[in-house]
Nucleic acid binder design. Structure first.
Lengths: 218, 218
DNA sequence: AACAATTAGTATGTCGACAATATAGCAGCA
DNA sequence: TGCTGCTATATTGTCGACATACTAATTGTT
């Protein structure tokens, strides 16, 4: 899954994305060791490329590296997921706040259109959990914040980890109808340029989502 | 300045820290291009080491890299500083909230001791802006959150950028007495385990700090 | 004179080999 | 038998050289 407009141009870019997705999708199991030589044969590139890819994965917190020892894929734990959602709540809350100030009318209209399509799908009974739609919703609000650091942190860092948890702990969860209502209220707050409310609603939205996942884990 | 307990063991580690500090302290000017060959002679290491160091700097958002073109030190702008403080407000607010829940009594006592020493210095007329003290204060609360992602984002990422702005836009600002009061109230909220209030006060504290800097820029 | 294309030059991307460090296994001793 | 120290092996860290892509200067054309 390519997020944003990351266009891999160099071999290291491509290998980074391949390796990352193999990890996120669970084809390389969490907690396992990453051998540079092994990976270099597997992906048919030199060790230097693999090293660069692993370095970037470390920056995303997807792998952990110890000097002179090697790199391991991070281990997934309930505690880790909670910490991740705490950061998400904080950052996406701020994103919603900023989006209420910085999104253009056009962007807001687009967002409402997306929400309407989402609603139609729910109405048509396709009310399985639409991850793509949900991601797209959050995606646009984060971009709407117009804050470079926020965007980068969430897309390059947090997002892939969240997806890794979703995939590997198998939560293609429900929450579709309630999530729709929450999304609607958030957009309304943004359209009203109510930054305070937008942040609060987004934080609650993510908190609910966290609670739902926590409940499923226990 | 070494933050946390990053112990450079490999040559790439050392070069990364040297290069980072040269940039943060302004010995390498903001916006300038980083030539790999040039740097490799300057720091007396191979180009591979320099490349790894630059990769890590890119992960910190201290340099920007374009494929097949090269890396540049980020340019400093008022807008960039504002965006940085927006992220700080969000993350450190959450850190204070979590610290109120997760800090041990001992850690809170230590924090109060630090605050007392800070107060004594202010009383003694050494009321120039104590950056080290201020940093140490925020440092402990961030650590007190016990949230790995939060800690890493702030220390490895945001912190050095903030310092870069401070150094290069020359703001060894005042705000020492008011900042002291704000710190005191934050610690009180944490000691009372009032997460809600701790977050709110921390966010206001950072907002005030941002406003003070903005005023100085215009 | 101004613009386009080609070419030379320089910087980045990639590679394979060597050096240094950690881990595991084995031998020797208490 | 259990522990300590050494050795061997395998993995990571580092390096210099080659391949490739961008940049800019030069030349030719309109």
């Amino acid at each position: 899954m390519l997020l944003g407009n990351e266009k891999p141009v160099t071999a290291a870019d491509k290998t980074f994305i391949l390796l990352r997705d193999d990890i996120v999708e669970g084809r390389i199991v969490a907690g396992s060791k990453l051998s540079e030589t092994e990976l270099s044969t597997k992906y048919a590139v030199s060790r230097a490329i693999i090293r660069e890819a692993i370095n970037r994965l470390e920056a995303c917190h997807i792998v952990e590296r110890k000097a002179n020892v090697g790199a391991r894929v991070v281990a997934l734990s309930p505690q880790g997921l909670i910490e991740l959602y705490q950061v998400r709540e904080s950052l996406e809350g701020m994103a919603a706040r900023l989006a209420a100030v910085n999104m253009t009318h056009e962007e807001i209209d687009d967002l409402m259109g997306l929400l309407q399509r989402h609603f139609d799908e729910v109405k048509d009974g396709q009310s399985y959990y639409q991850e793509a739609g949900d991601v797209d919703f959050h995606y646009r609000i984060i971009l709407g914040s117009k804050n470079k650091h926020l965007i980068s942190m969430l897309f390059d860092g947090i997002y892939h980890l969240v997806r890794m948890y979703r995939v590997q702990l198998g939560m293609a969860g429900p929450r579709v109808t309630t999530a729709y209502d929450e999304h609607k209220h958030i957009v309304k707050a943004i359209a009203n340029r109510d930054a305070e409310l937008a942040e609060m609603l987004m934080r609650r939205h993510i908190m609910y989502s966290k609670n739902s996942i926590e409940a499923k884990l226990s």
